[in-house]
Design a protein around this nucleic acid. Sequence first.
DNA 1: AAATCGGGGTG
DNA 2: CACCCAGATTT
Length: 377
Amino acid sequence: MSTEQRAGWLYADMEIVEKEDALLSPEERMAEAVEPLLFWFQKNARILPWREEPTPYHVWISEIMLQQTRVEAVKDYYRRFLEALPDIQALAQVPEERLLKLWEGLGYYNRARNLKKAAEETVNRYGGELPASYEELVSLPGIGSYTAGAIASIAFGIPVPAVDGNVLRVTARLMADTDDILKQSVKRRTEALLQKIMPRDEAGAFNQALMEIGALVCVPNGAPHCSRCPLEGLCLACRYGKTDVIPVKTPKKARTIEERTIFAVARGSEVLLRKRPEKGLLAGLYELPGASGYLTEQEALDFLGLEEKDAVVLEKLPEARHIFSHVEWRMQGYYISLRDEAQTKAGFFAERETAREAYALPGAFRAYAAYLFDRKS
DNA sequence: AAATCGGGGTG
DNA sequence: CACCCAGATTT
């Protein structure tokens, strides 16, 4: 629609101010949002550990940790991680076992492996400093379009967008856009739109302002707090009362259920562990040995390669379950205390304290690990 | 485009 | 209980 048409409509119906506003193009509407967002962010930015000294390394670590992970969950991991690995060189050299132990419980463990790979590349190709360009950043392992944009804008002041779930939700509501925000075409379109209106000198603050609005005001769960939003008068979803149906997201596929049997095996002061495969779920982490399906006591002994005389105690444990994003484990457990001479090929024995301190054991095993670690025997 | 990859908070 | 989160990578 041309400026003349818009003006014509406006002059024809001066009373209806909403109509004039409804004629803004997405780009114009987004451009109108820049100053209010920057002003709001100045006053409402949370104090977060990674905002104290936003070096490229600090921003990088925080952004990787924050992928699909809430701010509150990240804080303590972030502090502990930086204490252990204060710079890129330390990260490039850390043994993988120690790295995974630092990441234990945070999930998406390939993030940690990719972090180390990228640190090695940074040392080898860029002299140990993260490159100050979006293109080079996005080519590093674990750094996609969002994270490259976040590091580039926040740490280097490069005017590029950083489009995450918050930004997609806020922009979809601002435009009352009913397209599925999970489609990559919508993400690309949003990036292109934001690139056009990006404030050249405040890209970092602007990107963070959009995300901060999404986290604090235009929230993902429950109704947004539109009365506290600096974009209230500009937002079409708010005006049309559609914040409950926007953003549109296609439902995810239902989880598959897997039945497993887990073995909590003790032998004196030792416990039985097993290293998981290097690919797939919980890759490279440690676990209590297990088998698919529900095993009887005899099948359990057979699986472990034990004879009846080896097991001093063989106790069936309560069922436990653990929910991953796309799989649910329903677990039957056995607590087995072995005589000192007993052997098994189902895993390796580690001293209880060593196992606790040195091996990354995911939370999925917590219920049964408690029988080994939190209980005298 | 769809599936994979964790764990925890929230209504 | 279902949904979502400062996503990236593989298939």
